[in-house]
């Protein structure tokens, strides 16, 4: 990435073109495209936490849930006060409101990430995985019990603000942020902390701080992805953000190769398209996924799309 901004610009132009052509694209393809974009955001943000920083997290869907609910709360409860009762999707005011809602969702999820990041300081490996899993489940139970946001039945009537442009722009911004961060002198610290915490602190880095930053930033983008998801599906339920959703994101990151942004993007695209292609054999989908995961660990633990000879996952 010699000129990171040019990539960002290219992605935004692409989003703009797709958006302009969206009337002529088959709605089904548009839906698939939006699904791909949201999963790219989720996978790349989890990759910052689990891949680059080595904090294996099984609660990413929990951050997504916080963002989805917070963003929906902004458009549903604050929206009418700010832009009136009869919004027309696509208008300037609506898009401004949506932008604010996504930001709100991201910030709420970042706060949750901060909360999870702190116990991560004392835990590692499978214990950390379990605690993040527990956090995800706790978020789900809390949402189920929170009646103002629909409780167990979920929240309906979220305006359909998510467009292909928003999704492509968010995905591009996520990839840009994570990419630029981990290539900078500061960001090398994430990798150093993952490789060896004691050596990292001997190089003057604060491992605790890096982990908390990774969790907070990763959760922020997962929250925005949640906001996009809610305003795409127009209805969200707590059970839609359960453990198996987290696992889906984990599989994307593992398949792409921990810490390998390009591979993770490819895997997110592939794993979103695959179920669509496998629709005729839908009931075998999960069986295939899990066999893929097991086979990968046995035969190619560095990830399917990781072509570098060395890999963090196979370090001694």
């Amino acid at each position: 990435m010699r000129h990171p901004f040019s990539y960002l610009l290219l992605a935004l132009v692409l989003g703009g073109v797709l958006s302009a052509l969206s009337d002529r694209i088959d709605p089904y393809h548009l839906d698939v495209l939006i699904g791909v974009g949201i999963n790219v955001v989720l996978a790349v943000s989890l990759n910052l936490i689990a891949g680059h920083t080595g904090q294996f997290s099984l609660g990413h869907a929990g951050f997504m849930a916080v963002g989805a609910y917070a963003a929906a709360a902004v458009t549903i409860f604050l929206g009418p006060h700010l832009i009136g009762d009869a919004p027309s999707p696509g208008g300037l005011a609506e898009n401004a409101l949506f932008g604010a809602a996504l930001l709100g969702g991201g910030l709420a999820a970042a706060a949750a990430g901060l909360l999870v990041g702190i116990p991560s300081l004392r835990l590692r490996g499978d214990y950390l995985a379990l605690v993040t899993l527990g956090f995800g489940e706790i978020i789900r139970v809390l949402l189920q019990n929170f009646e103002p946001l629909g409780g167990a039945l979920g929240l309906n009537g979220i305006p359909a603000y998510t467009t292909v442009f928003w999704v492509v722009a968010t995905a591009a911004a996520t990839v840009f942020t994570v990419g630029c961060l981990v290539r900078s002198t500061y960001g090398l610290g994430f990798l150093a902390v993952r490789d060896d915490e004691i050596a990292a602190s001997a190089a003057g880095l604060d491992p605790a701080r890096y982990k908390v930053v990774a969790f907070t930033a990763g959760a922020f983008f997962a929250g925005i992805a949640g906001g996009l998801f809610g305003h795409f599906k127009m209805t969200i339920t707590p059970s839609g953000f359960d453990f198996s959703r987290s696992i889906e994101i984990v599989v994307m990151v593992i398949l792409g190769g921990l810490g390998n942004t390009f591979g993770v993007i490819l895997a997110a695209v592939l794993l979103t398209l695959l179920p669509e292609l496998l629709r005729p054999v839908a009931e075998y989908r999960l069986v295939l996924y899990s066999l893929l995961l097991i086979g990968l660990m046995l035969a190619r633990p560095q990830g399917l799309f990781n072509f570098r000879p060395r890999s963090p996952a196979s370090r001694a």
Binding site: L188, L191, R315
Partner: peptide, 27 residues
């Protein structure tokens, strides 16, 4: 104790963080 995934140059760069003048977000 070296970092398994960092190049030789990056080992020295990462230790230069104490004397980095730009804030992380400036990346």
């Amino acid at each position: 104790r070296l970092f398994g995934s960092l190049s030789v140059l990056d080992h020295v760069r990462v230790a230069g963080n104490l004397h980095r003048t730009a804030a992380p977000w400036q990346a």
